[in-house]
Design a protein around this nucleic acid. Structure first.
Length: 258
DNA sequence: AAAACCTCCAACCGCCAAGCG
DNA sequence: TCGCTTGGCGGTTGGAGGTTT
């Protein structure tokens, strides 16, 4: 019989006690993350694997930032949500110390129902009523060898996806798989997609995206290469083959391997 | 003071895809 | 190729604590 959280097997539910936390923490520190099906046994916990995993990821793991979201975190969250939609794991992967659950909860409680600001007052780039925004949703959610990234990009476009070896996180706060797009997609396709995405004058698009690039590179210690430098790069199949604003979009998809 | 209501977030649930035999 | 197990995700819920009446 398969033991899951849904069976009638008696597994403890509800809030975790300090003792359970300690047992789980000791277990993870001893055996490492992963093999969640073994964790309840190893730790001596009467909890299901999912519950153990969730408790560790959302509460016990080191480097988790508690407390209110800072303005820059909220700003980043809004921008990422505009691009990615409800991809909380991906969004959290770009906000150091925050978990997907944190981001989701914050969004649902603070941002979801808030009125959209007027266009001119918008600091988050919210779309006007005439602006159609297409949320980028890498499809499918998990990497597949036969992945068709987006309808815009047909099989004719060679579009390789590489699963990031370090899950796309360099801050230890997220376990979502990072996606790395190899830059074989034509710039035309990217520009076409950007235009559809923002449906704004070109300058605004570039400003928006450049902000993103600057933000990420600052946050993650990336070495920003300006447009002039980009043009001097010679390597083939390099992300630097792209204009700087294009690189930012791919970074948003989850890569920190620039 | 207490009941009603609201807010927030930890935890649960169900689903999906990868991996493996 | 198929079925099972596992890891991971987003949506939802329940209850504790705070606020209002």
């Amino acid at each position: 019989m398969r033991q899951t959280c849904n069976t009638s097997l008696v597994v403890r539910k509800g809030a975790w006690s300090a003792e359970e936390d300690m047992l789980l923490k000791n277990c993870i520190e001893k055996f490492g993350e992963g093999k969640w099906h073994l964790v309840p046994l190893r730790a001596g916990l009467n909890r299901c694997r999912k519950s153990c995993r969730l408790r560790w990821l959302n509460y016990l793991r080191p480097n988790i930032k508690k407390g209110d979201f800072q303005d820059d975190e909220v700003d980043l969250m809004l921008r990422l949500h505009k691009l990615l939609g409800n991809r909380w794991a991906l969004i959290a992967g770009r906000i150091p110390g925050r978990t997907a659950n944190d981001v989701k909860n914050y969004w649902n409680t603070h941002l979801k129902s808030r009125p959209k600001p007027q266009k001119k007052e918008s600091i988050y780039g919210e779309p006007s009523e005439h602006t159609r925004v297409t949320v980028i949703k890498p499809q499918p959610q998990r990497i597949s060898k036969t992945l068709n990234l987006r309808p815009h990009i047909t099989n004719h476009d060679t579009c390789n996806l590489i699963k990031s070896s370090n899950d796309g996180m360099d801050n230890g706060s997220n376990t979502s798989a990072g996606l790395v797009l190899s830059p074989i997609v034509s710039s035309d396709k990217i520009n076409e997609y950007l235009e559809e995405l923002f449906a704004e004058p070109e300058k605004e698009i570039i400003d928006e995206v450049r902000w993103s690039f600057d933000g990420f590179s600052h946050m993650e210690g990336l070495d920003v290469v300006g447009q002039e430098d980009v043009e001097q790069e010679e390597g083939q199949n390099s992300l630097f083959d792209f204009p700087i604003e294009d690189v930012a979009i791919w970074d948003i998809f989850g890569s920190n391997q620039l």
